[in-house]
Each structure stands twice: as C-alpha cells, then as structure tokens.
Write a protein that binds this DNA or RNA. Structure first.
Lengths: 341, 341
DNA sequence: CTGTTAGCGCGTTCAC
DNA sequence: GTGAACGCGCTAACAG
C-alpha cells in the first residue's frame, strides 16, 4: 500500500496538519519539524494523491476560450473540441466558457480580452491575430494575473505563457518537400493559396514552403500568393482564374482553410490535367478529395490535442506548476489517402 | 454546485445506500424505488465524480505486459513506454508488471500466458506472435476470465478483447504510395526488407505495399522479400549483397525493425547513387538517417499511444465497460525530415 | 429490500 | 507552533 499523510505523520512523530503544512509549503512550522517531515516523506517515498487532494480542495478552474467565428470546417472542428472539453469539465474540475469574436478582427479580440481583466478567470486561451494591439491586450491580462495561452496561431513577443499549436514554418517546409518530391522533377509553376497574410500561422507556412522550394526544387517556380480569406467562394474564383491564365501550373499548396472552394475548382478540370496538390487541415471535404485523388496529401494539426494541451497548460500555470514542454508539443500530421484515420 | 449523491437521495426521499445501489446497478432495490432514484438523477443532471468513487473504492488493477526481449530500438522504446506507464501507476490505480520472453518464440509466449492463468491479473497485454499455439493459450487465459489485448502485432481469430496497434495493411499501402510517388515515374526495382514473415504485422505490411505497387506503379518491380530478423548485422549483409547483385534497384522499403544495419549499408554507397528509402519506426538511427537524407520517409506507430490505449482498454474490460473504438484507433504517423517531433 | 455508519487520502478551520 | 476534528463525494460493510 502506498504511504499516506498518516504514515508520514506517524513516522515523523507529528500531526496531520503539520505534514500538510510542509507538503504545501505553508508557514508556521519550525525548521527542525519541517526537516523531520521532509525526511519521512523521502524515506517512505510518499507521493501525494492528487485526486484526493482535489476532492478535498473542491477547486475548479474557470477558463475562457476566445475563438474566431469563422465559417470553415477547421474552426468548426476547433469549436467542437472545446465543447468536448467542456463536457469533460466535471471530471477535470474545469469550467470552460467560449467567447466568439469576428475572424481577422484584432479590435474585437482586444475588446474580448479587456473584458476579462475584471472577470479574472483562472486562464484564457485565444486564437491570436498577430497585431500590436492584441499583443498589448494580452499583456494587460497577464499583468492582471491571468495566464494566457495562444491556440493555433501564436503571438510572439507577448507575455503569453505558452503556444498550443504546430510549428508552422516546419509545416510549410514539410508541404514543400512533399509537393516537390511528388512533382518528380517536372518543371513548371506552383500556386499558393493562403487565407490571409495578416495571421502569423499562414505567413510562417509560406515562409517555410518558399524556403524549401528555393533550396531543393529550383526547377519549380512559386507564383505570388493568393489570399482567399479562408472563404470557399473566393478561393474557387481565385484558383479558377489562375488556372486559366497560367497553363504551366503543375501544383498547388493550399496553406489556409476554406478548401471547399479549391476542391470545386479542381473538380472542374479534365482528367488529363491533374495537378499535384498539398493542402492543410483534414476535414470532411479534404478527406473526400484525398480519397478521390484530387488532393495528394493533407497536413493536419489535431485540434483535439491542441485544446487538451491548452487546458493542461492553463491548469499548470494557474497552480504555478511547470510545464513539460516535450509533452505539449503538437505534431504535424501527414495524411495520404492510405493512412486516413 | 454540481449535485451529489446526497442531493439525489434527498430528492428521491431515500438513503445514500439506495442511491449507490441504483448508480452501480446493484440488486436489492424495488422497481419503484429504482425508478424514483433514476428520475431524480435525470432531473438534477447528476454525474458521478469518478475521482471520489475511485478514492472510496481503493481499487487497483494488476496488469501484466508480455514483451519480447528484442534488441532493437523500437522494442526498447516500447519497454520504456510500459515503464513510463508503471510510473503513472499511482495516479492511475494500476499495478503493472513486465514479463520478458524471447522474440519470435511462440512456445515461450505460450508458457508465459499459461503461467498467468493461476495468477489471474486484471488484464494482460502481449505482443503476439501469430501461431495457433499462442492463439490457444490466449483463449485459455480469456476463458479463465482475464481480458487480453494484443499490442503492436495482432492475433486474429483469437478471443483477445482488443488490438492496440496500427492497421498494418494500410501502413504498407501508405509506404508504397509514398515510395512510388517519390520515385517519380522512374522504372526499376525496389527491395523489401522485413524482419520475419512469421509475424502478422510484417506480413500485412508487405501485402499492402505489394498491392499498391501493382495497382499504381506498374513500372516498378518489387523484388522478393529479404528477411533480416530485425537484426542489424543480418540486414546490412542482406542489403549489401542485394545492391551488388542488382544494379537497377532504385528504392527500398524496410518494413521491420533493426534499421541500423540498413543504414550502414546505405552509408557505404557513393553520393551519386542515392536510393529512395521508406522505413518504419522513428528511432535515434532512423531519425538521423532522415535528417541526413539517407532515408526519405519514416512511418511510425506511437508506442506511447499504444501502451496508454492498452491500459485504458484493459481497465474498461476489467470493469465490463464498453470501449469507444474510435478513440482507441492508433494512427500511422508519417515523418519527413521537416516534421520530426 | 432499505438505512446507518465508517472510512478512502487529503485540506482546512479552530482550538490549544 | 502544533494538533484534533470535520468534510469533500462516494462506496461498503453491517444493521434493521
């Protein structure tokens, strides 16, 4: 049987309360007594039963997730995952609230963040838009003692405690390598479809992609980026237009969301002129396109992992505990039609 | 505040014990009473506090993991993950014991399994060798009331409750697709290096790989499989010999373990004659080879996920609870040099 | 069949 | 400074 507080109290010849004081680093314990207790703890190999501790404390963590109200599958998925985390609230002792803000709107984010300064939740997670005002608002919240983590898209140089998302430069490089290899030495042009160069994750993916193409696949020319604002209709128009003007396009890298439009544009083409396509985010539509061979590879970030990681980190920060960085790294998943989950 | 057993006892006008009986489906409750309690539970939206329940129960789950004593990095990693699960035993209320058996040795497995019939642990996980005797031994253990899950390599048609591992046919297909695409239309021969055709996972990978090559890449000829027994030295010799005899080899699929030998053989070649190589299992050596460009892609199964999943499933089975299949699916990870974790 | 009672391991008053 | 005693939400004897 595992040793309990009783055992160490007995071993140290003190009462439960004293053991508790030492365990939780509270004052009012003489140095000698403290050392005696610490000795007993080490001796018996005591490890505190967190579940019992939480039960006794009855503590719950009120968290707020600020999410963009984007109408694309990835954001819907992210919402779902947060809701799923809410449904686990009971067992995880959390109380999660979602605040929706318009997408690509720094001012809305700032307002939402500032509103939380007074509320003082135990932690806040947000999908950051990369703007100085947002950075300042995050810093104000942190200053007020609320831990903040960024989700999916980061806000560097801010006081956020952690970023729960993938390394987007690496993602861009991966996409470039995959696309380049799949093209198998063909020469020609590749198009890049992004959501917006205003968000950091998209900028970084482009950066990584461009770097690899220049380094490793010089015979392929990367066309200027198209900004589809993660909107299917706009993406379809942009791609359709591009393909009619550029007959030498042999591949596409879609680094943002709203791939439904891209897929529609691809469907319109004749069987003979298939393009090599790498896209981001595994959704119902990209999955189908992968299976049908319209898309060759999909890079994915697991929104579920990201949300769970954000919650873990926020809890740790709220308790002033350290975070095991390696454990919280979000991986870049690659899906071909054969390894779909 | 969440409703507790006290609240529903009060609402239903019964005692705590009765509420507990209804909650845990225990007998000795009149139909009327039962319904009253169930009504109150629904009414108040009661959800049981699992942590508190576990605390009160004080139950621990004695599990046994039977692992092959293979000297390759993947198996070492698997061992590490099981040990890591053991270190979490305190908080997960498990007590895990590892039993090592010689690799590729059905009889040793049988002996280990039979020894457990008397011990009657709460569950057993094993890396199965695919032999009728093993199947029979597993069935005996299950018959004795011990839930069994297979790990990494399955044992179909046995009474095992679950398989915690990847879909190896899909893995083989993924490898084939990747290798075929990377070859970019070249014609030539590809070699296949396996551990042993006696284990199911290797057979299935080969099956998936061969199918895709035949379907989608007819210009590539797949050479007869080489069996390296997951032994580095043997693999090096086999590959070295092969390459000297077959000048038209343009790619290699290494579907087993012991890739250190393969990598040594690759290192001996001149820069001009690089092969396209897809291997399994991300280890220190395959990681380095990936970074150095000796290997082009690595497929991986996350041993940590597999072990954690096995524990979750065994717990559920021990309690007679259902398993959420979707949640326990182990994914096939693909790593290029750019998305290494 | 149903209720009473005593813990599980820990945190927290409130006396001493 | 230190300790005794109660309660967190739930389970499990043991009575009735």
């Amino acid at each position: 049987m595992r040793p309990t507080v009783h055992d160490i109290a007995a071993a140290a010849g003190v009462s439960l309360a004293t053991v508790d004081r030492v365990l939780n680093g509270r004052p009012n314990v003489r140095g000698v007594t403290r050392r005696k207790v610490e000795e007993a703890i080490r001796e018996l190999g005591y490890v505190r039963d967190v579940a019992a501790a939480n039960l006794a404390k009855g503590r719950i963590y009120p968290f707020v997730f600020i999410l963009p109200a984007s109408d694309n599958s990835f954001m819907h998925g992210l919402h779902d995952e947060v809701r799923s985390a809410m449904s686990r609230s009971a067992s995880e002792r959390t109380s999660i609230r979602i605040v929706e803000v318009p997408a690509f709107d720094p001012q809305a984010l700032v307002a939402a963040l500032d509103a939380l300064v007074a509320e003082k939740p135990a932690g806040v997670a947000l999908v950051a838009a990369d703007a100085p005002d947002v950075r300042a608002a995050v810093d104000r919240l942190v200053e007020a003692g609320v831990p903040v983590v960024t989700l999916v898209s980061d806000l560097t140089a801010s006081a956020r405690a952690h970023y729960a998302g993938i390394d987007n430069i690496a993602a861009g490089r991966t996409a470039g390598n995959l696309l380049g290899r799949f093209l198998g030495g063909q020469r020609g042009e590749v198009a890049v479809l992004a959501g917006s160069m205003l968000v950091r994750d998209h900028r970084e993916r482009l950066e990584g992609f461009s770097a690899v193409m220049a380094e490793a696949f010089p015979s392929v020319r990367v066309l200027p980026v198209l900004e589809g604002r993660d909107d299917p209709d706009r993406a379809e128009a942009l791609i359709g237009d591009l393909l009619s003007r550029h007959p030498h396009v042999i591949g596409i890298y879609s680094l943002g969301a709203g791939n439904r439009g891209l897929i529609r544009a691809l469907q319109g083409r004749e069987a003979g002129q298939r393009l090599t396509v790498v896209a981001h985010e595994l959704t119902a539509s990209t999955r189908r396109a992968l299976q049908e061979g319209l898309i060759d590879a999909v890079l994915n970030q697991d929104a579920g992992h990201e949300v769970r990681s954000a919650v873990r980190v926020l809890k740790a920060k709220a308790d002033g505990l350290p975070v095991i960085a390696a454990q919280e790294r979000i991986r870049i998943d690659i899906f071909l039609k054969d390894n779909l989950p």
